[in-house]
């Protein structure tokens, strides 16, 4: 990885130009470039703006006129939001329970994936043993397994257990005499599934970072008699905060925005299903209720947008660690 992310994030305004005349010359602003970029920026933003405006227009207006007429006939209301939050005459169930589900799914799934991936990355980078390179490449290559391939067998595992002939390799979690798995109606299958699917890329990214920490530091700590566990907690975790932060944002957004895993393991019930499942559902069933669907969609994207704009710098860094390699 030769590109330092912070360099990219702060270059535009912070560097004194006379120290890098060449860079300054390259960045001589061309009015045409600015114009084209601004046009594209506006094009890219308009659809989201349309969503936001539609969501605050009264039902009649939203369903019968385009959102741009808002600028000549500005009538706004928050009733769409209150209706979609609590449920109302049109859509019986509100988005609120799903919203909490999304939080309750995304935070633990992110933490579990990070902790387990950090541990594995440390072991692969700093505990010398035979075959560690092979395991590293095997884990990296596991990205090849598409989610779709793992869904059905995992669902079976959670519902009926697995056995290899007579040898059980995962217990049957059904309570005796009931067809309900112990996991049914809990977030546990979602947490486990998201953690499993995140591991290959998480281990790869964290290994890139942890493996580049200074060797002398580890060796000094080992000489002083520190155990791997102490080194991991007192050295690796604090030093890896930038890498951990960027992957945490990545994973949080991924889990929050996921629909496929949610539909498979949570169904559509308000007990466990996240906002994406709710949105997909109301889009399919109440497609004509534009004012409510847009309000629901905005509620669902507001958390990712806050996370994104507040922590963009870390997000970009994570992205670059994954894609830009020297």
């Amino acid at each position: 990885m030769s590109v330092e992310a912070h360099e990219f994030v702060s270059l535009p305004s912070n560097l004194p130009e006379e120290t890098i005349p060449e860079a300054a010359r390259r960045r001589l602003s061309s009015p045409w470039a600015s114009f084209v970029v601004i046009v594209i920026t506006v094009l890219w933003t308009i659809p989201t703006l349309g969503l936001l405006i539609t969501s605050i227009r009264p039902k009649e207006e939203a369903q019968n006129t385009g959102w741009w007429t808002f600028f000549t006939d500005p009538t706004a209301t928050l009733s769409n939001y209150s209706e979609v939050l609590t449920g109302g005459s049109v859509i019986p169930g509100g988005i609120t329970p799903y919203f909490f589900n999304s939080i309750a799914i995304a935070i633990p799934a992110t933490v579990f994936a990070l902790v387990i991936a950090c541990m594995a990355a440390y072991a692969l980078a700093w505990i010398p043993f035979k075959g560690s390179t092979v395991i590293f490449f095997a884990i990296f290559a596991l990205q090849v397994v598409p989610l779709q391939m793992a869904l059905l067998p995992l669902l079976q595992m959670f519902n009926k257990g697995w056995s290899l002939g007579p040898i059980p390799i995962f217990p049957d979690l059904n309570k005796a005499g009931s067809a309900q798995s112990l996991f049914a109606g809990t977030y546990i299958p979602l947490w486990i599934a998201h953690t499993m699917f995140a591991l290959p890329i998480a281990i790869f990214l964290l290994h890139n970072f942890i493996g580049q920490l200074p060797r002398e530091l580890m060796e000094a700590a080992r000489v002083d008699g520190a155990s791997h566990f102490l080194i991991f907690r007192k050295l690796i975790l604090p030093l890896s905060v930038p890498a951990i932060a960027s992957f945490a944002i990545f994973e949080f957004l991924w889990v929050w925005n996921d629909l496929l895993v949610a539909l498979t393991f949570a169904g559509g019930t308000p007990d466990v299903a996240p906002v994406t499942a709710y949105l997909a559902n109301i889009k399919g069933t109440y497609g004509a209720q534009l004012h409510l669907i847009t309000a629901g969609a905005f509620i669902a994207i507001v958390i990712p947008l806050i996370v994104f704009f507040a922590l963009q710098r870390f997000f970009v860094r994570g992205l670059l660690a994954g894609s830009v390699k020297g």
Binding site: R26, R27, S29, I38, K283
Partner: peptide, 27 residues
């Protein structure tokens, strides 16, 4: 690379990355 104030444009063009496919579908 040839622009002076690039960060706002960059953020706004980058923003859809944070939106779920379902949300994008509705948009």
């Amino acid at each position: 690379d040839r622009m002076k104030r690039e960060s706002i444009s960059k953020s706004l063009i980058f923003m859809p990355m944070a939106i779920s496919f379902v949300g994008a579908g509705i948009i």
